[in-house]
Design a protein around this nucleic acid. Sequence first.
DNA 1: CCTCCGGTATTCCGATTAGGAACAGTACGC
DNA 2: GCGTACTGTTCCTAATCGGAATACCGGAGG
Lengths: 175, 175
Amino acid sequence: MTSYALLSLLVIDSDSEDGLTGYELKQRADFTLRFYWVSPAMSQIYTELDRLSSHAYVSTDEEAAGKRTTRRFRITTAGREALKTWLREPTDDFPVLKHPVALRLMLGAMMGTDEVRAMLDRYEEALAERRRELEAVREMLGDRTSVAYAARVADWGLTFFDAEATAIDRTRDSL
Amino acid sequence: MTSYALLSLLVIDSDSEDGLTGYELKQRADFTLRFYWVSPAMSQIYTELDRLSSHAYVSTDEEAAGKRTTRRFRITTAGREALKTWLREPTDDFPVLKHPVALRLMLGAMMGTDEVRAMLDRYEEALAERRRELEAVREMLGDRTSVAYAARVADWGLTFFDAEATAIDRTRDSL
DNA sequence: CCTCCGGTATTCCGATTAGGAACAGTACGC
DNA sequence: GCGTACTGTTCCTAATCGGAATACCGGAGG
């Protein structure tokens, strides 16, 4: 699935000329993908790029700059087609949530109320920070129709963050 | 981290006499853990149990029933201590969300409005189904103080599901 | 001009996690 | 007895994580 996530980053970038390096791809992933998926490890990005390349879903431009040759990747027509097919096939994939705070909250009885409260406070802060980051992304997108779907995804993420804040409050009230 | 998730299942069960088999552990995980973490693969459960056993965090009872010997695992005092230490150490772990619907929504422009709508409808249904399942768990827990924290986690999950439903509606309205 | 340092770009490694298939015994209805 | 669903464990392969290692580039400052 991660390969499709990377393909989607490449397709979103595809109006630019040069394509992206693996490193840049990682940066894009850190910037947006992490909010609704995960930012893959460097190692995985390059692995996937090799795989995509072997399927001819991406093309590679070797660029010799001095002693170093860097590769820039661009999505191909075949890649675009593959992505479309993938989008079309109905899926029953359900979101996966790994929630360390919930995991620990489950054992709240082993912690004591104060520690639970402290944990919630810390999470609340981290959450607010993330929310600000996502909000910054959202504002960058504005209301341009070209990025309307990205904006919808960002809004979705904000809804999620707000729900988390609500859940924190409710939990705190119930202690 | 998964080993702590399993330990937590064992500690929750620890008022019962016999301990759990790997198989039963998998069932418990499928029943509740999956709502806020993931239900680990069978293979991983047994791997973790071996590891926990090597740390003496769990004890093993071999039980010969006919031709077959099954192992029942119980958390030890050392395991309980390890779990407490883990709970105490403040963590900056943030929830990880892998959201296939958001991933696809990002490429809504490649799908067309009808297909996006169809995707949202399917997700809405799947979501309602999960919500019912979690609600059943929540009702089982009731308001017994012994499971108050589990109930809080279940409530947290319900909040999340409701937020997802909200996000679906908002997205649909924006199309 | 040289050097240090932060950023760019890629590769490599080991560990963890995912996802099932395979295998084998058990319980129970018919 | 016989099929069949369930219980219990192991095995295998692939995907993913997480970061260290390597190396090159560019600019700031002495």
